[in-house]
Computed example of a mutant assay.
Amino acid sequence: MDTELKEAAFSGDVGFLKRAVDSKSTGYFLSEYTPSDNNYVGGNIFHLAAFTKKAEFFREAMERLPTEVQQVLFTQSNFNGWNPLLVATWVDDLEIVRLILGFYKSNSGLETKPPSNSDNNDQHLSKPWLGLSKSKKTPLHVAIGIKPNEESAMEILSMDTELLCAMVDDEGNSPLFLAVQRGLNSVAEKILISSSYSVSGQDGSTPLHFAPKCSENVLRLLLEKNLDHFDAVDNKGFNVLHQWAETAEVWPFNLILEGDFPAVRTKVFTDLMYSITDNKDGDSPLHIAAKSKNADIGQVLVRGYLQEVGASEPSELPDCPPWKTKNKNGDTPLHIALSSKHTEQIALHFLSLDSTL
């Protein structure tokens, strides 16, 4: 790519673009710039204009360049493996994202084919919204996980919902997992009502592990469709209940207690209450609640347990209730709660339940 074209794309020089279209062959606009510094973006004119957020340059090029030239520009990958749509999502430019996707929406009969420098027919090369970076991230992964922008994510998701929902990056992250983890409710809901999707998450986590970051409706959908994931254990040894206790959000526990999920309620407030982490501490959810310094979490866990075992009086308690469970260090949740003045309230709550403590 010559210096004038590179500078015009970077700066958004529409005047230069108009003159070049009138005097240059189409091949001139397909040239690429490779920077000497790998930290700097390279590629064709659309990569460069996307990087510097020059939407007007995009519009002018899309009005003046032939459709087949635009198609090649949109599908070309730069030296980092990024197409212009990936760059636009990375710099968080919704306007350019819409311009690129709008090209394909307005040319719905267009034959999608890989760029000219490719010798295969992979869809991720012919459709920019399925483009993959070197870390196997699609534009949707970027719009959800790296530069969260729910509007951009929804625009991209609408292009190929089923395919995009199934794509997992090289860290094991599915779009659903990232949407729940980032609290992007509209994206999560759209994925959950689709016919198929991946639930894969980084380090063995599932979307349910991070459901407290989303809305009540998202949690309900996750419970309806992915109940078995409550048994999933991540690489820290955390099941869903451990993770929820650490996030210090009370409303998900209340939803399970008060909602129409009896099977979930029984599993959460009986079986999982005694589960310990696989890490060096071997904590139960109540241990983690005591460490979180949020007395409300400990109290709602205890309330759920008492409700499930049908104990209204201390004399009705089982021999070993969860607040007597010891971790690998030999500590009960009470020991942990007594270790800090910030957790005095939860310690008093444990003592009120059981005089034998």
Rank of each mutant, 00 (worst) to 15 (best):
N294T: 08
L30W: 02
L176R: 08
W90G: 01
H342S: 15
K136H: 11
M167P: 00
N329R: 14
K236G: 07
G304R: 04
D354P: 09
E32G: 05
I146N: 09
V199N: 06
Y305H: 13
T332H: 06
N120T: 15
L301N: 08
G237W: 06
F230V: 08
T89S: 14
V187C: 11
H242G: 08
P212S: 11
F177S: 04
N217M: 09
L219C: 06
T89V: 15
Q70Y: 00
F261M: 01
E224M: 10
G183L: 08
P114F: 05
L164G: 03
K147E: 15
E4M: 06
P66I: 04
N39G: 15
N173R: 15
D37E: 10
L306P: 10
Q70K: 13
I96K: 07
K127V: 06
D331G: 01
V250P: 03
P252L: 06
V250W: 07
P314G: 07
P252W: 08
D92E: 12
M273D: 11
G102Q: 03
C165I: 00
H287N: 04
P262E: 09
T75Q: 14
S198M: 02
L192C: 06
G298Q: 07
D203L: 13
K18E: 14
K190C: 02
A245L: 07
N254M: 09
A311D: 04
T138G: 02
A20V: 07
G12K: 04
G237R: 06
Q299G: 10
S339L: 02
S186R: 15
V21F: 10
L125A: 01
P285W: 09
F230M: 11
V250D: 02
